[in-house]
């Protein structure tokens, strides 16, 4: 009876996971087809479309590099300024704290389309042309809330444990407390924030659609435009490259912080006293 329930729940989980992974698996597999059009299941096996991609579609490759550059810029900017803002709002008597907290969280409530429209109009008013910088600024806005929240959560988590007081008590000046205790302890929050910012930027289509020009296009925009008029396996090939990149990101994330931690889920049920972690 008990094992019956267990089997049932596992079957349910497997079905849901198949649903979650299905479209991604379909993309990966259909990039290997020998046909000139996309078909699933694929017919035959070939890497021809990857060759096609690298040989005849340099615009995809340059878009990929642009996307990576913008994502890195967003991650760095968000992490630096997000950490500073979180520190200030968490422990300095900054006037108008509530307003700033609300301001930094509000991009979550504003549809990306509206932000895109706003930036389009504002950039054209100011005469700012499409560039990696104009993209980074847009992505900075949408990724910032995550970084502030993650760093803030870490600050909150260890504040009650008085470790900073302990360091001061042992003779550390405020500057030393920051470098030797505060920073190492919020590092995991900062890294999670950086990864989030990177992924948010790398994945963004909506804001970028409004900011890009014909020459400056991120990979999602390039892909979106291409797939409106083409139904050939080059789309699935470049998509597979992106999936593999995501996989690398995922493994990196799992190695560095644990993907569950980054999303605020404990990996093991009890991470309290007694559990020995590799450090």
């Amino acid at each position: 009876m008990v094992s019956g329930r267990r089997v049932l729940s596992m079957v349910y989980a497997v079905v849901v996971y198949l649903f979650l992974l299905a479209p991604i698996l379909v993309i990966l597999l259909s990039s290997l087809t020998t046909t000139n059009y996309i078909v699933f299941p694929p017919r035959g096996l070939t890497l021809r479309w990857y060759g096609e991609l690298f040989a005849h579609h340099p615009e995809f490759i340059s878009s990929l590099w642009l996307s990576i550059a913008v994502a890195v810029g967003t991650a760095v900017g968000c992490t630096v300024f997000g950490t500073l803002a979180a520190l200030a709002l968490h422990r300095y008597p900054v006037p108008g704290k509530g307003i700033w907290n609300a301001l930094f969280a509000s991009p979550l409530l504003i549809p990306s389309v509206v932000l895109g429209i706003a930036l389009l109009q504002w950039y054209s008013t100011l005469g700012i042309a499409a560039s990696s910088w104009s993209l980074i600024i847009g992505h900075f806005i949408i990724a910032f809330p995550y970084v502030v929240r993650l760093v803030m959560a870490r600050l909150q988590e260890f504040q009650s444990s008085h470790v900073e007081r302990a360091a001061a008590n042992l003779g550390a000046s405020p500057v030393q407390v920051f470098w030797k205790v505060t920073l190492p302890l919020i590092r995991s929050g900062m890294m999670a924030g950086a990864v989030f910012a990177f992924v948010t930027s790398f994945d963004d289509l909506t804001v970028a659609l409004f900011v890009v020009s014909t020459d400056v296009q991120t990979l999602p925009v390039r892909l979106f435009n291409y797939m409106q008029y083409n139904y050939d396996p080059v789309v699935t090939a470049i998509s597979s490259v992106m999936v593999l990149l995501s996989l690398v990101m995922m493994i990196a994330m799992e190695r560095v912080i644990g993907i569950g931690q980054a999303f605020g889920v404990s990996k093991t049920h009890t991470t309290k006293r007694g559990t020995v972690h590799a450090h």
């Binding site: 444990s161 470790v163 302990a166 008590n169 003779g171």
Partner: peptide
Amino acid sequence: LPPHKRNMGMVFQNYALFPH
């Protein structure tokens, strides 16, 4: 004097050990 210049050893209720 600020805390770091007082040379007082303190044991905190929750120990406040540096987890890192």
